[in-house]
């Protein structure tokens, strides 16, 4: 399988790097301080291919902590709030759109 770093990176707007946490698969976002956060608001925002590639490279290097890092689009609101850029990422951030059979 082609490494995400070998793939052509195309950025059309603000983006973040996201992955799943190795221990439990929880959705995580790469931060500007070379760490991970479960909160999208903490994610490092990139807007061009080269910074995106660098952020992805750092994320991918953490093979123990995270699985399957990739670049995902986000939207920045007028108030600066970061929101997922598509439905898939919205579901990853917010969880399933249905009521679970057993309430948490």
């Amino acid at each position: 399988m082609t490494s995400p770093l070998q793939q052509k990176i195309k950025i059309t707007g603000p983006s973040v790097v996201t992955a799943n946490r190795t221990t439990d698969g929880v959705v995580i976002y790469r931060t500007a301080t070379n760490g991970w956060s479960t909160d999208l608001a903490d994610a490092a925002i990139v807007r061009e291919a080269e910074p995106a590639r660098a952020l992805l490279a750092a994320a991918t290097a953490d093979d123990v902590g995270a699985v399957g890092a990739y670049i995902a689009p986000v939207e920045i609101g007028a108030d600066g709030a970061v929101a997922p850029g598509n439905l898939r990422e919205k579901i990853r951030r917010d969880g399933v759109t249905i009521a679970l059979p057993v309430r948490a």
Partner: peptide
């Protein structure tokens, strides 16, 4: 979990035991 196996090495092993990684969790 202790880093001896990379995800690339581990993935085929977990798949042989029915473990996928989905959107929110395994």
């Amino acid at each position: 979990l202790n880093g001896e196996l990379t995800e690339d090495e581990f993935k085929p092993l977990r798949l042989m035991n029915g473990v996928y990684l989905q959107l929110h969790a395994y």
